[in-house]
Amino acid sequence: MIALYRFLFLIFLIVLWWVISLNVRANFIPSPWATLLAAQKLLADGKLIVALGDSLITFAGGYALGILVAIPVGLVMGVFLPVGKTLEIYVYALAAMPRVAFIPLIIVFLGLGFPAKIFIVFLGAVMPVLINTYAGVLAVDQELIEMARSVRAGRMQIFARIVLPSAVPFIIVGLRLGATIALINTVVAELYTAVRGLGGLLAIYGNTFRMAEYFVIVIVLAIIGVIVSEGLRHLEKRLVRWKTSD
């Protein structure tokens, strides 16, 4: 039923888009039909696929690197509290500052290619995952840990059976936030370093007022966002199936 409503709403959005496109002068808003034609052309000449591939490598590389760093660091901070209490203020400071400010510095050290782009995405993705992992470990039920101690479970076992599973829902929230920021930073990186990928096409078509092509790119980015967040939602369902609600 919800699927049907969603589909109907999509139709409504497309109709709305079409109506707006008819009423805005000078083709600033392309019609859905013109956009579809542009998409066909972009697919046919391979431009879209190449750009998509570039962007996905940047996104996946930076995001994966972020996760690989953030989860272990967050776990260490949470398990060894003196480490966590020492570092947390710096982590929060770094998370609160606009990391786009580092881009000139990154270009100086890493140039304009993939390493720089991946690092920009990494910087965006790492913080939410790290902070949520840390919070997840801190939120562990101390009564469960005492229960585990009362049956003489070892430290590794308490970590694996109590601490880690209790942090999983928090980590997934971090992964979702991280994915969003990683996607944003992918486009930012492609705009500010070597102009490539979907962000590059966005800049080219935007600057030359080729609005139909420009809209194709915007829609592709939206679709990537949906796919990634839906994927994570399914992962969450699998991992926290013990929760009776939802």
């Binding site: 049956v151 109590i162 599973p165 013990w242 929760k243």
Partner: peptide, 22 residues
């Protein structure tokens, strides 16, 4: 324990087995 303290992400079987760890 007063508030049961069962492991929410473990089945009944796994909860009881956990007490046999050591």
């Amino acid at each position: 324990f007063q508030a049961f303290r069962l492991i929410p992400w473990a089945t009944v079987q796994a909860n009881v087995e956990f007490a046999l760890t050591a």
